[in-house]
């Protein structure tokens, strides 16, 4: 595992920076309803953290932390959760109706269902974008004598 990926310096920096990227993404998601940010931008930042790991350590390492199958399931779960929040509005009369108490302005728990929606969107975007980039990263170009060949590897353990 150690001989894969980039140099030791990049790996060290990535190991230090990764938690902070996740933290920033989470704060963008959780404070999306009172400051600029929100589910989409926070989710993209979360994905950015995993993409950094993917570039620095190689695919095997990242797929051990976050397997693609689990990311796919989280993607669907995020979408379904968002739909469920929307459908909950039927209880109070309308699709997407904001039925939770609104709370105090500028507090974390304010704006009712918006924060839940942001969390669901963040989950969906982070895992969906991660799956997209992971699938793109499975493509390999192999330089041979006849020219450049293409190879798609779904099993990551094989391409040692």
């Amino acid at each position: 595992m150690n001989n894969k990926g980039m140099s030791e310096i990049v790996k060290g920096i990535a190991r230090i920076v990764f938690p902070f990227i996740l933290l920033y993404g989470l704060s963008l998601i959780l404070y999306g309803h009172i400051t600029p940010g929100g589910g989409f931008s926070g989710g993209v930042v979360l994905t950015g953290g995993f993409v950094l790991l993917l570039l620095a350590f190689g695919k095997d390492y990242v797929f051990r932390i976050l397997p693609v199958d689990i990311a796919k399931a989280l993607d669907s779960a995020g979408a379904l959760g968002f739909l469920a929040i929307a459908l909950l509005g039927f209880l109070c009369g309308s699709f997407f109706y904001n039925l939770l108490p609104k709370g105090y302005i500028f507090h974390l728990w304010s704006a009712g269902t918006i924060i839940l929606s942001n969390i669901m969107i963040g989950l969906k975007i982070a895992s969906g974008l991660f799956v997209a980039i992971a699938v793109l990263s499975m493509a390999r170009l192999i330089h041979t004598k006849e020219g450049i060949k293409y190879k798609q590897s779904r099993k990551t353990e094989e391409d040692q």
Partner: peptide, 24 residues
Amino acid sequence: SHLIILPVAIYLGAAFLIALLYKK
């Protein structure tokens, strides 16, 4: 009148339910 939103909601829910539950 909720019926008019249902075609969209049903299809979106169906899409992700199928992706989540029956992908094999």
